[in-house]
Every structure is written in structure tokens, then in C-alpha cells.
Lab assay of single mutants.
Amino acid sequence: KTSLNPNDLGPLPPGWEERIHLDGRTFYIDHNSKITQWEDPRLQNPAITGP
């Protein structure tokens, strides 16, 4: 199984920011909706992941 390299996905969507949590995990901030999440928003785009 090959793992996706986030660098291959291009930039984050407008308004998003990638940060490192105190425990070392990466999380994502959506400044548009004022939410945070652990999942990379680029992986949730149907145009990238397919049907």
C-alpha cells in the first residue's frame, strides 16, 4: 500500500492552515468556518480522490 504524500496534493484550499499540535500530530484549521480537524482537507476533495 502506498501512502499519499501531502506534498503531492498541492496547496491547501483557500482559508486553510496546517499546524503542528503539541503532541506532534498535524492538524488543519479552516479559518472560513472557524473549525479544526485532523484530516487533510485536500484528501476530502472528490476531484482528487475520485468517485
Rank of each mutant, 00 (worst) to 15 (best):
S33A: 12
K1D: 08
Q37V: 05
A47P: 14
T49E: 10
Q44N: 11
L12N: 03
W38C: 08
R25G: 07
L43N: 09
L22C: 08
A47F: 08
L22D: 14
D23L: 03
T2C: 09
I48M: 09
Q37A: 04
I29E: 11
D8I: 08
N32M: 09
H21E: 12
W38Y: 12
I20N: 04
D23P: 04
Q44H: 09
I48T: 14
P46H: 11
P6S: 15
R19W: 05
G15W: 03
R25I: 01
S33M: 06
L43V: 11
D30E: 07
N45C: 11
P11L: 04
E18S: 13
D40G: 01
E39S: 11
Q37F: 05
S3R: 05
N32H: 06
L12S: 02
L12D: 01
L4Y: 11
H31V: 11
I20V: 15
N45E: 12
H21I: 04
I35M: 07
P14R: 11
L4E: 10
T49I: 08
R25Q: 08
T36N: 04
I48L: 10
T36W: 03
S33D: 07
G10R: 07
I35P: 02
H31S: 11
D30H: 15
N7G: 13
D30R: 03
W38A: 13
L43R: 10
I29W: 06
R25K: 10
E39W: 04
I20G: 06
A47W: 06
L12E: 03
N7T: 13
W16F: 06
T26Y: 11
Y28M: 00
D40M: 02
T26A: 12
E18F: 01
K1L: 06
Y28C: 00
D40Q: 00
G15F: 03
S3H: 08
K1W: 00
T26N: 09
T36Q: 05
D23W: 01
P11C: 09
N5V: 11
P41A: 00
I29M: 10
N7W: 04
A47M: 08
P6L: 12
G50M: 06
P46Q: 07
N32S: 11
Y28K: 06
G10I: 03
D8G: 11
D8Y: 08
R19C: 10
T2N: 15
I35C: 13
P6C: 14
N7E: 13
D23F: 00
D23K: 06
G50I: 03
F27K: 13
W16C: 03
K34A: 09
H31W: 04
N5I: 07
P13W: 01
H21D: 15
P14D: 14
Q44T: 11
D8N: 14
Q37Y: 06
N32I: 14
G10N: 15
N32T: 13
I48F: 06
H31T: 14
S33L: 08
T2S: 13
L22V: 15
R42W: 00
F27E: 15
I29V: 14
P41D: 00
N45K: 14
K34D: 12
I29L: 09
D8M: 06
S3Q: 04
P13Q: 02
T2A: 08
L12M: 10
P6R: 14
K34N: 12
W38G: 07
E17N: 02
P46S: 12
N32Y: 07
T49C: 07
N7Q: 10
S3C: 05
P41G: 01
T2I: 14
G50H: 03
H21R: 10
E39N: 13
L4T: 06
S33G: 05
G50S: 09
P46N: 07
A47Q: 15
K34G: 13
G10V: 09
G10Y: 02
K34H: 11
Q37L: 01
R42N: 02
P41Q: 00
G24E: 01
N45Y: 09
N7A: 13
Y28I: 07
E17F: 01
T26C: 12
P14T: 10
D40T: 00
I20F: 07
P13K: 03
Q44W: 07
L9V: 05
H31D: 02
T26D: 02
S3G: 05
R25E: 08
N45S: 13
W16D: 05
T26K: 14
Y28F: 05
N5S: 10
S3E: 05
E39F: 04
N7Y: 05
Y28W: 13
I35R: 14
H21A: 15
Q44Y: 06
G24V: 00
H31P: 05
F27D: 07
K1E: 04
P6H: 07
Y28N: 01
P14S: 12
R19T: 05
S33E: 12
L4I: 10
D23Q: 07
R42F: 00
D30P: 00
G15Y: 03
E17V: 04
R25P: 03
L43H: 10
T26S: 11
D40P: 04
P6Y: 11
G15D: 04
L12V: 02
R42A: 02
W38I: 09
G50N: 08
G24T: 00
P51V: 02
S3P: 06
L12C: 01
L43S: 12
L22M: 14
P13V: 00
R42L: 01
T2E: 11
P6T: 15
N45R: 13
T2Q: 13
K1S: 08
S33F: 03
